[in-house]
Simulated scan of single mutants.
Amino acid sequence: MGAGSLGGVSRREEIAANLTAVRERIDRACEAAGRSPEVISLIVITKFHPVEDIAHLVDLGVTDIGENRDQEAGAKMAELDPAVRSQLTMHFVGQLQTNKAKSVVAYADCVQSVDRPKLAGALDRAVAARAGDAGGEASLDVLLQVDLGEGEDAGRGGIPPAELTHLAETVAGTHRLRLRGLMAVAPLGLDEEGTAAAFARLADLAQEVRTTHPEATILSAGMSGDLELAVAAGATHLRVGTAILGSRPDRR
């Protein structure tokens, strides 16, 4: 695929430099937290960026990407060269309506934004239907999205912590969904101390879930602006977009 250029630097070179800088940030954060970088998975958020960028990412060693709009994500996955797609784990990280469940399970390897029992049921049925059509077994990894905001600060998506145990039990009781952990976005408007406290709360909730669901080992938290705080809190998966691909272009 062709690459654009800016000031003599190819798009691939631009992405490579940004990717190196982010990986160095992760390395430093892990050193400060006494953790190994090997336990951190980097998910590059490719929303609004073209398929060509995804091909560059794969060529640069990226194995995980994330999208949060069903229509865009489905179109990109269909457009990707099968050889490129086969090297990727595709995470759906956006808010999801139940009527989109069938569409999403057709291309996503993991849905990180399960936030209510009704959605869990819709995804389970969609995976079962897809397995039936294919004449075989199928499953879907899912994370439970937790709303870390309180009072007026709530509302960035996710289930209230008080309802988390019930949702975990619901997902664990499905036939086709595999509960793999938790995901959250830091509430808006917090300073560094507040964000660190929010991620620490998420880590505590994750530990509680793992007491009864030991397979739920993923903790997805942290983005371009706060990944260091997420690493310090024990995040296993970081969702980084802007710091690697730059500002999102206008919607196509």
Rank of each mutant, 00 (worst) to 15 (best):
R12T: 11
E14A: 10
E14F: 11
A17H: 12
N18R: 12
L19I: 08
T20V: 10
V22D: 01
V22C: 11
R23K: 13
I43S: 10
V44G: 06
T46F: 03
K47R: 14
V51K: 07
E52P: 04
V58S: 09
I65P: 02
G66M: 01
A75T: 11
A75G: 08
K76G: 06
A78K: 15
D81H: 12
P82E: 12
A83Y: 08
T89N: 13
G94Q: 02
L96E: 05
A101D: 05
C110K: 08
S113M: 03
D115Q: 09
A120Q: 07
A134I: 00
G136N: 11
A138H: 01
Q145N: 09
D147N: 15
L148F: 14
E150I: 14
E150R: 14
G158P: 05
T170E: 15
V171W: 07
T174P: 12
P187K: 00
E192G: 14
A200H: 07
A203P: 07
L205E: 08
L205S: 03
A206G: 15
T211M: 03
T211Q: 13
E215F: 05
T217C: 09
L219V: 15
G225T: 00
A235P: 04
T236S: 15
H237R: 00
G241F: 06
G241W: 05
T242D: 07
A243W: 00
G246Y: 02
P249L: 10
D250C: 05
D250H: 14
